[in-house]
Design a protein around this nucleic acid. Sequence first.
DNA 1: TCGATTGTTCGAATATTTTCGTACAATAGT
DNA 2: ACTATTGTACGAAAATATTCGAACAATCGA
Lengths: 97, 97
Amino acid sequence: MLTQILYALSDEVRLSIVRQLDEDGPATCGVFEVDRPKSSLSHHFRVLRESGIVATTRQGTALLNALRRKDLDARFPNLLDAVLERPASTARKRMRT
Amino acid sequence: MLTQILYALSDEVRLSIVRQLDEDGPATCGVFEVDRPKSSLSHHFRVLRESGIVATTRQGTALLNALRRKDLDARFPNLLDAVLERPASTARKRMRT
DNA sequence: TCGATTGTTCGAATATTTTCGTACAATAGT
DNA sequence: ACTATTGTACGAAAATATTCGAACAATCGA
């Protein structure tokens, strides 16, 4: 649901997580530069997961979080790019750095 | 602030107001098809106003609300169109339609 | 000025979110 | 099996938002 996505993105902590995921690619919860205890972070990741913005998969003992860019772009074209203040993506492929 | 805009748009009542403003143009508070008492509506309009999404001007005894499309597009390109699920406006003049 | 129209403001109840400590669960390595 | 590493789940307190009735304010027309 759109409002659920907008709500998830309307929090500075969660938005900063999404920005970092967009810039650096999938990452485990621990690496995020957010000044919060892990139980708080876990809550924010849950909100991101339940709104469909992030997908989480287990990677050994850690959990890897990835931005669901394709799903989001398919359902709400340009929304993620607009929120991330990037030019609208024209289905262009990202290159490895 | 971006999060403030996203928050304002993350409520069904406010989003429906924004959609109606987008489709029908500026309107007074009374005309909106929202099942809420006026004090509740007033609250939602305040949130929309304070986030910079809507501008309100007095028009006789009523208040006219207008979507601040230009300001929004200037500061957060494509955001409003993406939220309204419309194709991104190119804001470019074209010879062909 | 009176009365009708249109919204805002106030205040308090309700609901929802955020926060964070503690306990718990899953996995990996030794 | 034991231990360390990563997160989740729970629960309760604090912070925010929503809701709505009632009172108030601004404007207009007669």
